[in-house]
Structures are given as C-alpha cells and as structure tokens.
Nucleic acid binder design. Structure first.
Length: 535
RNA sequence: GCGUCCGUAGCUCAGUUCGGAUAGAGCAGCGGCCUCCUAAGCCGCAGGCCGGAGGUUCAAAUCCUCCCGGACGCGCCA
C-alpha cells in the first residue's frame, strides 16, 4: 500500500534524478500552512534554485508538470516564492481507507526485515523500589521497542541487574541495622546506608535477624527487591525478555580473562596497586580503573564483561537507555569496547532526562539512599497506569520533566490521555448507534473538505511513525494522537454521521469512522494504553 | 574549569534531525454552543523581541560563533 507522502516523494526523487547537482538536497515535503488548501507542499524548488541557476518558480513549474501526471493528485499548484502545493483526489484517499477497513489493520512497511535489536533499559539497582524517574526510562524504552516491532524488527528487551559491588553490602548492612532496631537496640543508620522505611518491612517479612550472615541478608534483600521491581514493572505493563544478573555474567574469572585480553592489546597499566585500562588512548579523557587496589573489580570492568556478553549473543543493533546523569560514562564504555574490538557503531546510547517531582508547586528531593522519593507504585496508585504511561511521553526525553503530582491527579479529568481515549470512545459509540443499518448502502464517492483533511491526516500515521522511530522520539506519538483527536472532535461536532434521511452520506461517514477507529486503536496499542469502547 | 542537555504565550510544553509561507497545543482567563451518534467535546477572544548579540542566505525558533541563565556529570561509587 502506498501512503500519500510516498507518492509525492517518488515523483520528487524522479525529478531530482534528472539533475545530479541537486541529488543531495532534501525534498522538503511538509504540510502547508493552514491558510493554504493543499495536502502537502514541496519546498525543493527554492532549495535547488542556487545549484540549478534558475528561479525557484521556474523549477516549481517544471516539477508541478511531473506531479500532474499522477492520477492520485487532484490539483498541483505553484505558490508563494516557489512551493508546489499538492492535493490528492478523494477517490485515492478513499481507496486507501477501504483497504485499511478491509484488512482491519494498518499496513506497516518492514524496513526491519527481522534485523535484531537488543534494548537494555530500566536496569535499576536492586537496592530500593522503582521511583518516578525509572518509570520515565521504562516507558521510553518500552514504546521505542514497540515501534521497532511494528516495523518488522526482532526486539529483545533486557534488564541488567547490578546485584554486586559495595552497594549490596551496604544494603545488607542497612537491613541488619534495621533488624537490630526491631529488637529494641538503639543503633542508627549512617549517611551511607539505605534509610527508607521499605527496608523495615522487608526485614520483617523475610525474617531477617541480627545474627544472620551478611551474605544471607544480601541475598534475601536482593531477591525481595528484585521481585518488587518486576511486579511494579508488570503493573506498568512492561515485560522483559532477558534478565541478566551482574553476579552471573561477570564472575571474577571473567573479569580476569577480560584483563588478560586487554593486556595482550597493550592497553593495561598498573599504578598504586590498581589496574588501569588506557582508555585515554581511545578517546577518553583519562585512563579508567578496572581492578581496584583492594582486588575488587570496578563497575566499569563488570560492565565491559556484560557488554562483551551482549556482543557475543549477537544483534544487529544494541541500544542502551540510561538516565542523563550517566552521560559522562558513555565515552568510557565506548573506549573500552573499542579496546575489545567490538563494533561500537552498533551500540547506541539514548539518554533520558530525569523527572523533577513537585507536589503543589513544592519540589520533592529524591534519593534512594535517604529513602525520600515517590515510588512508581504510588504514582500509579494516584494517577493510573494509562495516564502515567501517556503523560511520561508528553515531553521530549532529553528535556527534564517537571511532574507535579497534585496537578496530575487534580487534572485527571482533562488529562490529555482522556482526550485521545474519548475520541476512540466516540467512534465506538457511533458504530453502536449505526448498528450495521447502512451496510448495504453504496457510500457517496466524495468527501467534504473537512472529511478530506481528516482522512489525509490519518493516512499520514505510518510515514510519521517511521520518522518517529528514526529519531528515537516516541513522545511524538502522543502529540500526533492529540492532533488527530482534535481534528476528529471538530469533525464530529459539525457532522452528524448516523442520519437515516441521508443514507449514502451516512454510509460514507461510517467508513471514515471505522477507519479512524483502527488508526486510534493502532496508536494507543503502540503506547500500550487502553482504547476503551465506553467511558 | 571541561563536558552533556535545557531556555519558545502567565504556567506546562510541541516544533530544532533535514532551515521554508502569518511560530503551534494544553492548562489558567474571558465570551458563546447540548430536543440530535457520550459536553471527558466544540467555536470564538486574548495572550510571543522563540534567553541575548553577531554571522551564514532568497529565507533562521531551526545552522555557525560568542555570551547569559538553569539542570546534570567530571570517583580505586554504581
């Protein structure tokens, strides 16, 4: 199936092929301003004027002659300084609509053709519950994964559990102190401990007593918290294909082998009893410690082993999704992987900015260590899964997100997610009302101007999603759905669909309704937000 | 100091990849619209030196340089 944008693009490319000097210039296919009547505008003539040494309008006229050959186009006009405005015929749009209704689904091209993509995200440390910031990264990763999937990629979602290192020791110490407190002993947790109340419950529930060994307590604590994290994620409709434990993938002997391998490359040096990788030779600011002077491997060393494991398992593309506070770590990891001979161009690191939480305008400081945070569970309790998923994608992932809990809950009635869901509900309501009574009526074969605009907008969904995937910007989906919902709500107010006195028009409009319902459902599915039949 | 990101309407933000026509939404404000498929909706009004200054060009919120303001990072933490 050919979407409208693709048809214009094909012609413009044919045009460009006649003139090698403009082959590299982007076509500039975009929506015209609303005051213009066209579906799409082409800005190429103005961009090409310099290279072709001709006036933009002259080029535009030549291009418009080529576009006029296409039977799908009703009108092609040169406008303004050298735009070409194109409008599609109703019959072409309606043919696409009929096809989608017949298939009951939107057709996606499959540029992925089963290429394998491994997306690692969330990967929160098992020292406390997920907080709101983790939720943002979780949604970003999950919807990005869904986008890859619809375009034919084979996606694996992976969670890396950092269940080693000093943080786990500190977790166990914190739990032991809590268990002593529970028995009435007057001991205090220090700055370095995890001081959230949740540890009291975990200690009580898992029967930890002061006499237990640190290893036992660490194991019990990790298990409890990991289970908790995954149950929260499941509530949030996020499931992983792989869970990789640092303790399993990066045992001491694996780190030893890693060091040997890097030593053979001549990239290892020792200083003050520590083992360094010479990452500064590979673009990093300075060399990085692999093995500390106390013999313990660093997080970095383990992480290299883990990434090496990923490469060994194989994928065409690896995507790591990190909080922006880790941005300074990127170069270190890339340099390390380069030292190991990994194809670093296959690794993509996407950073998301953290969430600043407010309650009634007052900022809330978040720290797992101090135990001050709003958990993702609490947020879901207050706001609901659909609203949280949707709202976390109402801002570009590399801008910080201000989230005011009071506003989010108090405004729950005019939350953007309901605006979109309501559009779907209205569509469902119309179909209930019609109840098949126009099924045998031949629909009118033309569209009103408003209907034309609405259909054209909706047919742009798949090409739009392709751009969204290419830019790794799933948040655009929520904006696009709001726009389509706005177009539809306007249309709905002005056009009565079910009208027994005008059966041909009703039949035509019902086709539009069926079509739009599929588009909304597809979009909401992509976000894994409910598409309700009634609200 | 160096690095990454952000700065657009009173507030929260799209738009910056890939430069296009008069810069868009939502919320808050003001005024209208339900004998009719759900008013969780629609229509209208008002609201802008796109942080600032230069530069590139037919054209800059978008590209380049510098500056100002904010967040984060720069460990033998993870």
């Amino acid at each position: 199936m050919q979407y409208p944008t693709q048809i214009i693009k094909t012609v413009v490319n044919n045009f460009k092929n006649q003139y090698p000097e403009i082959e590299q210039i982007p076509a500039g296919i975009e929506p015209p301003p609303e005051t213009e009547t066209g579906d799409l505008a082409v800005a190429l003539p103005m961009r090409a004027a310099g290279a072709l040494q001709r006036s933009p309008r002259e080029i535009a006229t030549e291009l418009s002659e080529m576009l006029k050959q296409r039977s799908e186009l009703k009108s092609v006009e040169v406008a303004g300084p050298g735009f070409v405005n194109c409008t599609f015929t109703d019959s072409f749009l309606l043919k696409s609509v009929a096809k989608i209704i017949e298939q009951q689904t939107v057709e996606f091209p499959e540029p992925g053709s089963n290429k394998r993509v491994l997306i690692e995200f969330v990967s929160a440390n098992p020292t406390g519950p997920l907080h709101v910031g983790h939720g943002r990264g979780a949604i970003y990763g999950d919807v990005l994964a869904r986008l890859f999937e619809v375009f034919g990629y084979q996606v694996e979602r992976e969670y890396y559990v950092n269940d080693g290192g000093s943080q786990i020791e500190r977790l166990a110490e914190s739990m032991l102190l809590r268990s002593r407190q529970a028995e009435g002993e007057a001991v205090e947790l220090s700055e370095d401990h995890y001081r959230g109340d949740y540890l009291k419950e975990i200690v009580a529930d898992s029967g930890i007593s002061p006499g237990d060994s640190i290893e036992t307590v660490a194991r019990r604590g990790k298990e409890e918290i990991i289970a908790w994290i995954f149950s929260t994620l499941e509530r949030f409709r996020i499931n992983f294909d792989n869970t990789v434990y640092e303790s399993e993938v990066a045992p001491p002997e694996a780190v030893g082998e890693l060091v040997k391998r890097l030593e053979a490359e001549g990239l290892v040096r020792r200083e003050d009893g520590a083992t360094y990788l010479s990452t500064s030779k590979l673009g990093d600011d300075k060399d990085r410690v692999l093995i500390r002077s106390n013999g313990e491997p660093t997080y970095f060393a383990n992480d290299l082993v883990y990434h090496l494991d990923k490469y060994n398992r194989g994928a065409d593309q690896f995507i790591d999704i990190w909080g922006h506070d880790h941005h300074g770590y990127q170069q270190r990891l890339r340099s390390g992987l380069q030292a190991l001979g990994c194809a670093t161009e296959r690794l993509e690191i996407e950073l998301y900015q953290l969430v600043d939480l407010y309650r009634g305008g007052e900022p809330l400081q978040m720290s797992t260590r101090r135990g001050e945070f709003v958990t993702l569970d609490e947020l879901i309790d207050e706001v609901g899964v659909d609203a949280v998923r949707f709202n976390f994608l109402t801002k570009n992932h590399n801008s910080p997100l201000d989230f005011d809990i009071e506003v989010a809950t108090s405004q729950s009635e005019d939350n953007p997610v309901y605006y979109v869901q309501y559009a779907h509900t209205r569509l469902a309501g119309i179909l209930r009302k019609a109840d098949g009574q126009f099924d045998d009526v031949e629909p009118e074969d033309s569209l009103s101007e408003a209907g034309h605009r609405l259909v054209f907008k909706a047919l742009g969904f798949v090409p739009f999603l392709q751009q969204t995937l290419a830019g790794r910007e799933p948040h655009r989906i929520t904006f696009w759905l709001r726009e389509l919902a706005r177009h539809f709500h306007t249309y709905y107010t002005a056009h009565r669909v079910v009208d027994p006195s005008a059966p041909a028009i009703s039949a035509r409009r019902l086709e539009l309704v069926k079509f739009l319902k599929i588009i909304f459902k597809t979009g909401l599915d992509l976000l894994d937000v409910n598409a309700p039949e009634r609200m």
